[in-house]
């Protein structure tokens, strides 16, 4: 077993899963919505990035310059994700958010949107998988006997930087304060002039953008297909559950744990066992901490 390779894979996976899980976690705690359409956002953002990447490939002058193509494609993915999040918010959150039993209704509504959207993607783009151009060039960074390849290094750096920016924005700006206030007490939030619906759009745009980022990064390794959102949704949800729904810090810790687990399993047992060990691990942790790792530290929304 190559320990260096395992570590690099673990950190890369942790970055990508963490990005997804934080999105799911923020949506749940601020809107009370378990966003089953998050996988759809993921897939749509992948297609958005692919469309833009395809157009750029056609322009001869810049088709080989990664430092131009890469950021544009990433940005396209993020923007498509944000737009898709806004649409999902308008369809599943706005009409029913103040009706009784919103938690279950929202779950079902977003699941329905997800199923419809996946079929639309299938109809428009066809079942063939697409691949993005390499976004981070072709370099290798040897640290000791560990080699960090371009796609992994780029994924790590861009997800950490963009996540840090997003979390910093949530810490320092008025909008971020509104989102955090709504995560803690939606009832009191309206008393300080925070509109639930408007904040809903901000939250869904932000989390959609995070899904878009994760989608672009993961598509350096995997392909984009209409159903490519399903696995990330499951992974993101399970990381968010393990970390404690509603806790950003918990999601980061859980992403590191599950990323390590997945990389170790792939190296020791084989990739096909990754989901089995992952859920065993989640079950064991939840037996001891039913609210997840940080579920008691951060008092999240009561389910």
């Amino acid at each position: 077993m190559d320990l260096g390779f395992v570590i690099v894979s673990a950190v890369t996976l942790a970055c990508i899963y963490g990005t997804l899980a934080i999105g799911i976690s923020i949506t749940w705690s601020s809107l009370g919505l378990i966003n089953m359409a998050y996988g759809l956002t993921f897939a749509t953002a992948g297609y958005g990035a692919w469309l833009v990447g395809d157009q750029l490939q056609a322009i001869d002058a810049i088709s080989d310059t990664t430092w131009i193509v890469g950021p544009i494609v990433i940005l396209a993915g993020i923007l498509t994700g944000a737009a898709c999040g806004v649409v999902i918010c308008a369809v599943t959150f706005i009409p029913i958010h103040d009706k009784p039993n919103f938690t279950v209704r929202g779950l079902i509504a977003s699941l329905a949107v997800s199923l419809i959207g996946t079929q639309v993607l299938l109809q428009v783009f066809g079942p063939r998988a697409k691949s993005l151009p390499p976004l981070f060039g072709d370099w290798e960074l040897p640290i000791g006997n560990v080699v960090i390849t371009a796609d992994k290094g780029g994924a790590m750096i861009s997800s950490i930087v963009l996540l840090a920016l997003a979390l910093r924005w949530m810490k320092s700006s008025r909008r971020g304060l509104e989102i955090r206030a709504m995560m803690m007490n939606p009832h009191a939030a309206s008393l300080v002039g925070i509109g639930v619906r408007r904040t809903g759009f901000y939250v869904m745009a932000l989390t959609g953008a995070l899904a878009g980022l994760a989608s672009v990064l993961l598509s350096q390794t995997y392909y984009i297909s209409p159903f490519s959102g399903l696995t990330p949704l499951i992974k993101g949800l399970s990381v968010a559950l393990l970390g404690g729904l509603g806790s950003v810090n918990g999601a980061i810790v859980a992403a590191v744990i599950l990323g390590t687990n997945e990389a170790l399993t792939s190296a020791l047992l084989g990739g096909q066992y990754a989901l089995i060990t992952q859920f065993l691990l989640i079950i064991i942790v939840l037996l001891f901490r039913p609210r997840g790792i940080a579920g008691i530290l951060d008092k999240a929304r009561e389910a």
């Binding site: 008025r174 304060l177 509104e178 803690m184 009832h187 009191a188 939030a189 300080v192 008092k299």
Partner: peptide, 15 residues
């Protein structure tokens, strides 16, 4: 009717 995790300063800001 208060946000448990926000600091006093953030609380005043939220107002």
């Amino acid at each position: 009717e208060i946000f448990h995790g926000l600091t006093v300063e953030e609380h005043l800001d939220s107002g």
